[in-house]
Design a protein around this nucleic acid. Structure first.
Length: 200
DNA sequence: ATGAAGATCGCG
DNA sequence: GCGATCTTCATC
């Protein structure tokens, strides 16, 4: 029979909704990265933030530019940018084309591989903290701007899988962190019991 | 052409 | 609480 778990992969059409609706639905889903050496790193999404048109903290608030172009594109693609000249941040593009909208992935609870298999881990760090933070997440998964605008799929070596049907973790909703505008919007969500969440 | 700000992180 | 580090974009 069919051995490929295609039904597990999140379809782009499910992401073609406003980012504040999509964001909490992504919690508990698994982000999978096939590394250059062929190994797979998987992690459950533990913390997210939504950004949208009309939101002053959104990179697409003013207008479409070279950097933020992917945000205006199709849902189900990635939007990757460099921040502070040092770290990359990964977003899942949402909503319809023309609408600047995306969900920032802030933390993963890694489920594989074990700590010692992760090549970018230079220092001793607890496994559940390796992808605790948007910059660290991209560092561990080796995601940079070359992923910007790519569709999330196995062909891109980066994709999203559905959460279990019996997912029932407690979700907390708060305001976003690390921003100076739009601080009043309650568009950050995280899994209450995840040790990978930045801060509470 | 110029410069200020930035969806971060780790140290102390 | 600070500095590292550098691209992007708004403004001059």
């Amino acid at each position: 029979m069919n051995s490929l778990p295609l039904n597990r992969i999140v379809d782009a059409s499910e992401l073609a909704r406003p980012s504040p609706e999509v964001a909490p639905d992504l919690l508990g889903c698994t982000l999978v990265r096939r590394m250059p050496d062929g190994s797979e790193i998987r992690g459950a999404i533990a913390e997210v933030e939504a950004y949208e048109a009309g939101d002053p903290a959104c990179h697409g608030y003013r207008k479409r530019t070279l950097r933020n172009a992917a945000m205006f594109g199709e849902a189900g693609r990635s939007y990757v940018y460099l921040i502070y000249g040092m770290y990359h941040c990964l977003n899942i593009v949402t909503d319809r084309p023309g609408m600047a909208s995306a969900v920032l992935l802030r933390a993963l609870h890694l489920t594989s591989p074990p700590e010692e298999m992760i090549p970018t881990s230079t220092r001793r760090e607890k496994p559940h903290r390796l992808a605790a933070g948007p910059g660290k997440l991209c560092r561990v998964l080796q995601i940079d701007r070359s992923f910007d605008g790519l569709p999330l799929s196995p062909e891109s070596s980066l994709w999203l899988e559905r959460r279990d049907q019996n997912f029932d973790a407690e979700i907390v909703q708060t305001t976003r962190i690390g921003i100076s505008k739009g601080t009043d919007l309650p568009w950050r969500w995280y899994l209450a019991d995840s040790p990978a969440v930045s801060k509470k």
